[in-house]
């Protein structure tokens, strides 16, 4: 009978032979199982301990153990090498050209008007303004009469109105919403009223439909200087730090005093450029202290409360801010135009 020692030697040799041409870690594993697994040659060696005389057992046991350690080492060494090679190969195969186009769900874009509107709402809602949206079809009373613009008033000519019946019209100004708010709500009032308005006007800077944003504050002790302070804040947030406002006298029937508000040109910093036509200032909105008659008409005591209102064209702000030169572009829906506007 072959001695265990010899058998060990033989197994060692078998293992070495078996490992000679192994190229794949998977194959290696199979070989390992063949030797080391259940019923494998190495495992079976332990069974043959029964046949070893007791006095030799310690020595043989040691030899068997040595064989196990040796073969474990052999296998794991090779396994490590093969796996490293295989990984290298896999990496090489799987390497992609990272500069190829990305796959993504195309992202659309909000309309520039919506972007500006959201920006404005964010600025003013932070100052405590609620948002109110009135109807686009108004009657003569809300659009004109209640705003201190009776039928014979020349200010009616300032805005050419679309009528749909002798009494009903497409609102020419979001100011119409002021009255609806003041009829229902008593001071303190801080309302922002964005929406579409309509005027019979059609050229590069006018459109028969456009959007306005109206602001209204009514409370005790409101002064023109508060309007100035609030608009300074608005100008900074919308057009950038360092942008200043300038008030100059104007006229609207529903405010007294009335002002035009200019912002210092954010393109040139006020030095004068094409955008500001060399003046250093850009007209952005109309405003004023709410006319006493308007307050009275809404049942608000003008001796107790004062307020201011301001109104701006959203398209105008968008055109200024983005440098859009023709208002028509905003209503054409050309995707080449639309896709440029990022939130």
């Amino acid at each position: 009978m072959q001695s265990v020692k010899e058998k060990i030697k033989e197994i060692k040799q078998h293992i070495e032979e078996a490992l000679e041409n192994v190229k794949l870690s998977k194959k290696l594993y199979e070989i390992k199982m063949k030797f080391m697994g259940k019923g494998g040659e190495v495992s079976d060696l332990s069974k043959s301990m029964r046949d070893v005389p007791p006095e030799e057992r310690p020595e043989v046991g040691k030899l068997i153990n040595e064989l196990k350690v040796w073969s474990d080492g052999k296998f794991s060494e090779l396994d490590e090498r093969l796996k490293a090679e295989e990984l290298k190969k896999r990496y090489a195969e799987e390497t992609v050209d990272v500069t190829m186009p990305a796959k993504r769900a195309a992202y659309g874009a909000l309309h520039p008007n919506t972007l500006i509107r959201n920006e404005l709402v964010d600025v003013f809602s932070g100052m405590g303004f609620e948002i109110f949206e009135g109807p686009e079809i108004e009657n003569d009373y809300y659009n004109f009469t209640a705003l201190n613009t009776p039928a014979d008033h020349p200010a009616r000519d300032m805005q050419d109105t679309f009528y749909i019946s002798p009494e009903l019209l497409l609102r020419t100004q979001t100011s119409a919403g002021q009255i609806r708010v003041m009829e229902k709500k008593k001071p303190p009032i801080k309302i922002l009223s964005p929406g579409k308005v309509y005027r019979s006007d059609d050229d590069a800077t006018h459109s028969p439909m456009f959007s306005q944003m109206e602001g209204l504050v009514v409370d005790e002790g409101i002064a023109l200087s508060d309007l100035k302070g609030m608009l300074d804040e608005f100008a900074r947030k919308i057009f950038g730090e360092g942008v200043k406002t300038r008030l100059r006298p104007s006229y609207f029937p529903f405010t007294e005093p009335s002002v035009e508000v200019d912002v210092s040109c954010f393109a040139c910093g006020g030095a004068g450029c094409r955008l500001c036509k060399g003046t250093g200032w850009i007209e952005v909105l109309g405003a004023g202290m709410v006319n006493r008659r308007v307050l009275e008409g809404c049942g608000i005591d003008p001796d107790k409360y004062t307020g201011f209102a301001f109104g701006m064209g959203i398209e105008r702000i968008a055109m200024l801010k983005y440098g859009i030169n023709n208002m028509k572009l905003l209503f054409e829906g050309d995707v080449r135009f639309l896709k440029q506007f990022k939130d």
Binding site: M127, E220, D226, T245
Partner: peptide, 14 residues
């Protein structure tokens, strides 16, 4: 006119 910021007005929740 020096800008002021509603020093007397009530706080509103916008």
């Amino acid at each position: 006119i020096v800008g002021t910021f509603l020093p007397t007005a009530a706080i509103t929740n916008g």
